[in-house]
Simulated assay, not measured.
Amino acid sequence: MELRITNPQENWLTEQILWNNEELKAAIAEKVKDYKTIAYTEDSLKDMKADRADLNKLKKAFEDERKRVKKICMEPYTKFEQQVKEITALIDEPIGLIDSQIREIDERRKTVKREEIEELFTSIGFQSFVKLDMIWDEKWLNATVTLPKIEEQMKSRMYQIGTDVVTISKLPEFKFEAMEVYRKTLDMNQAIQEGQRLDDIQKRKLEAERMEAERKAREAEEAAKQQTAAEQKEEPAAEKEAASGSVPEAPAEETASIPEEEEPVFQLDFRVWGTSEQLMALREYMLQNQIRFGKVE
């Protein structure tokens, strides 16, 4: 069975279409030369449009003839192409039937091999959190990839996972969280990044807490200074009362109500030394115990 082209012959297909190409090319070149030097003005707009129409008409005549000749040349090929497609369609039918059977046989082979790979995975003894689909390589189902080769790749992956687990366990912070990510992804970089992300959050939190504590300390110190300044303004009145030999009364906001039955009250002058915090604590103690006090020289 042989395909034979009897007409046209090969030499016909290589022949040129004969026409007065050079003659027309020279004539057209001479005709359009004048247009290159014409300087149109606004008054010659009508002439410009007329010249453009003539040139478009000339171009259309050539294009129409080109299309006519192309159609003549293509008609036998178009018919030949259709005839060939009718024959190839007859061939495609058994090819499709064979392909479907090949796919069916290949799918059965892959199913058997997948079961063998699953048994191999179970026998190797991967870490408990590792599942077959987490390390699966679709190339393993290819007929050219043998089970010993797959076993070698599986063991290499298992050893790598063990190394990754040891590395994560040595992280200074957030090793548990990083390990949780690794158990789900088997991605070492992603696990390390998660640990670093949480560590960064913790550092920012501690820094914020430190700044807040400093702010409160500054506010407490400022309040103590203001209280000391207020007490210093009361010194002149306290000195006058001390000079007269009487015990100064505590400010209204710093004393509690006096019991109806008063016990004997004694006066004792003394000087104390301490930090601002200690002095404030002493003052609070005297207020809570209803001890009247005032500054003396």
Rank of each mutant, 00 (worst) to 15 (best):
L268G: 04
D99C: 04
F62R: 03
F270T: 09
K49F: 02
K60T: 00
I95V: 00
E284L: 08
F174G: 03
Q227P: 12
T144W: 13
Q190E: 09
V165D: 03
A26C: 13
I105L: 10
T14P: 06
L287M: 10
Q196P: 08
T6S: 10
L171N: 09
S44K: 15
E93W: 07
K25Y: 12
V296P: 05
L55R: 11
K113S: 01
M280V: 07
A178D: 07
D51V: 01
E284N: 11
A27F: 12
S246Q: 14
K184P: 06
V247E: 09
D187M: 07
E254L: 14
A143W: 09
G274N: 02
I291V: 03
D92I: 00
F174Y: 13
E42R: 12
E115Y: 05
D269V: 08
E231C: 14
V32E: 08
K295C: 06
F126Y: 03
D200R: 12
M48T: 03
A224R: 12
E93S: 05
M74N: 12
R157D: 10
V181R: 05
I28N: 11
D200P: 06
V130L: 05
A178E: 06
D137W: 06
K85R: 01
L147S: 10
W140Q: 00
L198V: 00
S246G: 15
D92P: 00
A256H: 14
P251L: 10
W12H: 12
F174T: 01
V265P: 11
D137V: 04
L268Q: 07
G294F: 02
E173P: 02
A39M: 15
D54T: 07
L58W: 09
L171W: 11
R183T: 06
V145I: 01
E75L: 05
D64C: 03
A237H: 13
F80E: 02
K46L: 02
